[in-house]
């Protein structure tokens, strides 16, 4: 019987320069679409963020082990983002969470998989699943309100909240990181459409306000 041999498949050379992000071709268009001032709004893509999807029942042994490995608690209800050790955890569903971090994705995924090992649940590297758009500026809420069914008024949608919703019919995770700052996480294949939709929604703020 032939003996099985494990082949080392890990790439040894750095191939990061060969990667291109889902909205890389729009970088110049985004820059042109940005406006400054009192009605300003700016859009850019933040490529290659590490994202790890967790599926685990809340308050289970597996969840506690993941929390220990993450260095932060898992959020316990919708809208909540927990953060610690350079990682943010977004609530997606009662048993589904998204970890966002700047670490090397393979290392983080492996560490979390080892923590969950033997317990029901899953840890999957989803870094290529979504890309990140950053929408900043005084008019950012007005831009989003053109295509988001949520009430984005600050009395309802507070800073630090992240939810699953739609923008321009595209399913996204929307995270309000500051008073006028939003992070939008569309799936990679929707990045082109959503990027162009946002540019279109931003266009009116280039012109001076008319009464």
């Amino acid at each position: 019987m032939a003996e099985l041999t494990l082949v080392e498949t890990t790439a040894t050379q750095d191939i990061s320069a060969l990667r291109s992000s889902p909205a890389a071709h729009l970088a110049g268009v985004f820059e042109e679409a940005c406006t400054q001032g009192a009605r300003g709004v700016q859009l850019r893509e933040v490529p290659f963020q590490t994202m790890v999807g967790l599926r685990v029942a809340q308050d289970s042994d597996g969840a506690h082990r993941l929390e220990e490995a993450l260095g932060t608690l898992l959020p316990d209800r919708h809208g909540i983002v927990t953060a610690g050790s350079g990682r943010s955890v977004i609530w997606l569903a009662p048993d589904e969470f998204l970890v966002i971090s700047a670490e090397e994705s393979a290392d983080l995924t492996k560490a979390l998989q080892e923590a969950l090992y033997g317990h029901p649940g899953s840890v999957i590297d989803l870094s290529a699943n979504r890309t990140t758009f950053e929408l900043n500026g005084p008019s950012s809420r007005a831009v989003l309100e053109k295509g988001c069914p949520l009430d984005l008024h600050p009395r309802i949608f507070k800073e630090g909240t992240a939810v699953n919703t739609n923008i321009g019919h595209v399913p996204v995770v929307l995270w309000k990181t500051g008073a006028e700052n939003y992070r939008i996480y569309p799936r990679a294949s929707f990045a082109d459409y959503l990027g162009r939709w946002l540019i279109d929604a931003m266009a009116e703020f280039k012109a001076p306000e008319t009464n």
């Binding site: 919708h78 069914p149 949520l150 919703t165 739609n166």
Partner: peptide, 17 residues
Amino acid sequence: MIQIQCPNCGPRDETEF
């Protein structure tokens, strides 16, 4: 637009359902 009370996410627009 109807709003539906999602047991997990609270009231959301009908189009999300």
